[in-house]
Design a protein around this nucleic acid. Structure first.
Length: 687
DNA sequence: TTTGGCTGTCATATA
DNA sequence: CCTATATGACAGCCA
């Protein structure tokens, strides 16, 4: 329990545990399971749906939590069960829990209280609650958390909290069976069993009311029957899968030794849960991203209990085979023989009805991905992980499958391809994980980091092909993880027939696939098709946009054939010229538009000038008229020496320089004008 | 079928 | 000399 406490305090919890998936081993996040109430809400996108009534009618819906994260819906909990009255208020709990940095956002007051207790150092008490929770849920109520609350309510005594409905023998059986019956429980199984047994003996002393014992026993029996069936099925799996499992476990064990104890401790609690509770627990409630949730779902829906899955350290490949809805199940008999749980159809977390069509296989596709042939399909990655397929074949396989624009299929509005063409130095590509089981969409598309790519024929560790970054935290729904892709490809051209697919597309999926391949091929540009044909490990956009230094270094660094180099240069030249042509046309259009604008402006200015000219002429005419009138008026008042009126036809008025006005005969005025004009002409000639 | 617009590409000039 | 850019010209596609 100290290890549990230390593990949790060190930031343990779901995130910490799921990091183990990087080794390719499915590891269940038991802590969250313990924190979840048994009635399984199924997460359909962002909403939690409660599928059908719980096993017991004594359930009620708790208020919707607004704690953020994935606590968006109310949860079922047993009626009449109250929380620990000594527990702090929910708001305070949430604040304290958040302050502790626990990577789990409690949704209910009970969650918060449990997390708070564990993270704050009260691990023993919390364990008591957890144990009581598990025991209580095993009693049929299926409310682990609230059962814990009840245990706490019973005085907060750890002993009282540990009390459960099961007898010691039954609990020992329950704890021992999941691990003991698994033939290949891993190298650390015996050691873990010892620890588990010790803990079990110290913990599981039931003193719960006897009314729960009968229900618990009945459900336990059902659970064991299911376990046996599932174990038999697991035992029938091919040897190579078992070997892989063992290898994965051994590898993982080196890294997990510090927390394996905690896992078993949690397993102990889980093992005491009734089968229906376990079976009902869906990862839909837990927004486990990507492969994790997928694997969990597969385990949940398949008649293999979580206990088995956990104790066996079921690897991803096994998880694939365990999923009845899995599109990559290679044994059709096994696929079709699995009972379909009623809520299975919701596990695709999609609103597209095509996904729920049996045999469509579309659930296995990754959500919208970049169309630039950068993504390795789920099938490819599947093979990479489990079959250690050569990357050469990956390259060939992607030829067929990487172009499928799943966004058109599944309408993932919040999708992000993450495979940014411009992220030259970002080796982490974001890829969404589909909720479909075992679809670890390692979009190991073309490298966006030229320094990391080993195009010349080397590939890095296969384990890195699908590294799930669980530090990225949770999103609101069953979303996706950042995947560290190894964009490493061989450039060996593959024969046309080498584009074999790791699985067959049955029926309708085949048609859909071919249709989308046609569409995507049609949408590809000529250079893209050429690059694809020659397996150029870079997108056209990258080739065009990368600096010349990077381009040259790329040409020199990687082993490229002359044809590939020529094609790369042509692609780059054409791409740049295409951009230049676009810019040129845009510029030309801008110039034309500017010229048109200038023309309009000039035309408007011309019109304005015309109007002003007309106005000026009009004013001039008015002034002339007024001057004429004034002239007439002056002459009408003029008299000669004899008192007679002056004839305006013989005389004219002339203004002198000093401002005086002279009455001059017109003959003189005409001769004077002639003289002045002659003088002016002379001056002009002189000048 | 014709036509105009859009786009990609090539050839060439220029910086 | 190489590269990037700009631009005219041409061809193909499409509404």
């Amino acid at each position: 329990m100290k290890q549990l406490k230390r593990w949790w305090s060190a930031g343990g919890g779901l995130l910490h545990l799921t990091v183990l998936l990087s080794s390719g081993v499915l590891r269940v996040d038991l802590d969250l399971y313990l924190l979840l109430p048994p009635p399984p809400p199924i997460l359909l996108r962002d909403e939690l749906l409660f599928l059908g009534p719980p096993a017991s009618s004594a359930y009620e819906l708790s208020p919707v939590s607004t704690s953020g994260g994935w606590g968006r819906a109310g949860r079922l909990h047993p009626k009449g069960r109250e929380l620990d009255p000594a527990a702090p208020p929910e708001g305070q709990l949430l604040r304290e829990v958040r302050a502790l940095g626990v990577p789990f956002i409690p949704r209910t007051r009970v969650d918060a209280w449990l997390v708070h207790s564990v993270a704050a150092g009260d691990a023993d008490e919390a364990h008591g609650r957890l144990g009581a929770a598990a025991a209580s849920s095993a009693g049929g109520a299926g409310a682990s958390l609230d059962g814990g609350g009840q245990a706490v309510q019973g005085g907060g005594d750890p002993q009282a909290a540990r009390s459960g409905p099961l007898g010691a023998a039954e609990e020992e059986k329950a704890l021992a069976e999941p691990t003991a019956q698994v033939p290949d429980a891993g190298g650390c199984a015996s050691e873990e069993n010892e620890v588990l047994r010790e803990k079990h003996e110290g913990v599981d002393h039931s003193s719960q009311p006897e009314e729960n014992e009968e229900r618990a026993s009945a459900q336990k029996e059902n659970s064991f029957q299911q376990n046996n069936e599932n174990e038999n099925k697991i035992a029938e799996k091919p040897n190579w899968e078992a070997e892989k499992s063992t290898e994965s476990r051994n590898e993982r064990h080196l890294n997990e030794v510090d927390i394996s104890f905690s896992l078993e401790d949690l397993l102990q609690l889980l093992s005491s849960q009734p089968e229906n509770s376990l079976e009902g627990i869906s990862l839909g409630d837990i927004p486990l991203p990507g492969c994790i949730s997928d694997g969990m779902n597969s385990s949940a829906h398949h008649p293999v209990t979580f206990s088995q899955a956990i104790s066996q350290d079921v690897n991803l490949h096994e998880a694939i085979l365990l999923c009845p809805n899995n599109t990559f199940v290679r044994d059709p008999v096994e696929k079709t023989s699995q009972p379909q749980e009623p809520f299975l159809q919701f596990n695709s977390h999609t609103t597209n009805p095509e996904q729920t069509l049996p045999g469509t296989n579309l659930t296995g596709f990754l959500p919208p991905v970049d169309n630039h042939m950068r993504n390795l399909t789920s099938q490819d990655l599947d093979l990479n992980i489990f079959d250690e397929i050569d990357l050469m074949s990956l390259l060939a396989t992607e030829n067929d499958l990487d172009q499928i624009d799943i966004s058109q299929l599944f309408d993932e509005p919040d999708s992000e391809s993450g495979l940014s063409l411009n992220s030259y130095h970002n080796s982490t590509s974001v890829t969404k994980f589909n909720s479909s089981p075992s679809v670890c969409e390692g979009a190991t598309g073309y490298s966006s980091d030229y320094d990391l790519g080993a195009v010349g024929g080397y590939y890095q560790e296969p384990s890195k092909l699908c590294h799930v970054d669980h530090d990225s935290g949770f999103h609101g729904d069953l979303t996706f993880q950042h995947v560290f892709h190894n964009h490493t490809y061989h450039l060996k051209p593959s024969a046309p027939g080498s584009t074999s697919e790791p699985f067959s597309w049955p029926g309708k999926s085949q048609k859909i696939r071919s249709r989308y391949l046609e569409d995507t091929d049609r949408n590809l540009s000529r250079d893209e098709r050429h690059a694809k044909a020659l397996h150029i490990p870079f997108s056209v956009d990258e080739i065009v946009r990368m600096p010349v230094d990077s381009f040259n270094s790329m040409l020199s660094r990687y082993y490229l054939t002359d044809l590939q180099v020529s094609l790369l240069r042509d692609i780059r030249r054409r791409g740049k010229n295409k951009v230049a042509a676009q810019n040129c046309r845009k510029r030309k259009l801008d110039i034309i538009l500017n010229l048109e604008y200038d023309v309009c402006n000039l035309q408007a200015k011309k019109e304005t000038l015309k109007r002003e000219r007309a106005q000026c002429n009009k004013a001039i005419n008015i002034m002339k008229q007024k001057l004429h009138d004034l002239y007439r008026d002056v002459f009408s008042r003029l008299r000669d020496d004899q008192g007679r009126p002056v004839n305006p036809n013989l005389y004219a008025l002339q203004c002198s320089h000093d401002g005086s006005i002279l009455l001059i005969p017109k003959e003189l005025v005409a001769s004077g004008h002639k003289k002045e004009t002659q003088k002016g002409k002379r001056k002009e000639r002189r000048n």
